[in-house]
Each structure stands twice: as structure tokens, then as C-alpha cells.
Computed example of a mutant assay.
Amino acid sequence: MADALAERCTMLGGPVIGLMQAVMGSQVNAIRFVEVIERAREIQRIVARGAEGIDDPAYTRWVATAPVVLDEIIDGAEHRDRERVWAAFSDPERGMNALAAACTGQPGW
């Protein structure tokens, strides 16, 4: 089970870092919204795999809400709404911080 979590966290590491950079960049440069959308969609494809084989409650809680959060990030970016993108990304319960908490201790996290 821990191996499945490690594998999933490894898969998500690069895309999440890319999303973080794009979200931060979009706060000062609207051109970065395109990249926000691309990175969020990349994460959506990984999230679509679900949490099979992963029994970590923090991860399963995050993966259950991630589709809604990622949709909010994408919709906010499509509408060039910096505040909405940031609010969804940084939400302490559902955003990328919750994923980081689930992946704490995994390589690259």
C-alpha cells in the first residue's frame, strides 16, 4: 500500500510543481493562465486513476475532492480570475497543500 502511495506521489510531483509555478506566475502575468490549465489537466489525468491500492486517509480524502478543485482552477484560469485560481490552489483542506500533506515523506516531497 505504501508503494502505491509512493508511486502516485512520484507521478504527481512534477506536475504539481509545474502547477505551483504557473499559478504563482499567473498572479502577475495573465499569459501563465494557459500553463495553469495545462498543468491542472495533467494532474486530472493522474487523479482519474483514483486511489486503488492506497489506504492513506489523507491521500484518499484529497483524491476525492481533487476533481472539483482542479475544475475550479481551470475555470478560474479560463476566466483569468487570479483570486479564484489562487483560492482553489491554496485551499488548506482540498488544494495542493492537502496533497503535499498526504505525500509528506515520499521522495521529492
Score class of each variant (00 low, 15 high):
Ala40Val: 01
Arg39Thr: 05
Pro107Met: 10
Asp91Gln: 02
Val68Glu: 15
Ala51Pro: 06
His79Ala: 10
Thr104Arg: 12
Gly105Glu: 10
Gly76Thr: 02
Gly13Lys: 09
Arg82Asn: 02
Trp86Phe: 13
Phe33Val: 00
Arg45Leu: 09
Met20Gly: 07
Cys103Tyr: 07
Met20Thr: 07
Ala66Ile: 02
Arg84Ala: 06
Arg49Val: 13
Asp81Val: 05
Thr10Arg: 11
Arg32Cys: 03
Pro107Gly: 12
Glu93Asp: 12
Gly108Ile: 13
Leu70Thr: 05
Asp91Glu: 03
Tyr59Gln: 09
Ile74Gly: 04
Met96Glu: 03
Gly25Ser: 11
Asp3Arg: 14
Met20Glu: 06
Ala51Cys: 15
Arg32Gln: 06
Ala87Met: 06
Asp71Met: 09
Arg82Ser: 01
Val68Thr: 10
Met11Lys: 09
Thr10Phe: 12
Thr10Pro: 04
Glu72Val: 04
Asp3Trp: 09
Arg32Val: 05
Trp86Met: 04
Ala101Glu: 05
Gly25Val: 00
Ala88Tyr: 01
Val47Pro: 00
Arg45Ile: 06
Asp56Lys: 09
Glu78Cys: 04
Glu93Met: 08
Asp91Met: 04
His79Pro: 01
Ser90Met: 08
Ala22Gly: 05
Glu72His: 14
Pro15Lys: 03
Ala100Thr: 07
Ala51Leu: 13
Gly25Lys: 00
Asp3Ala: 14
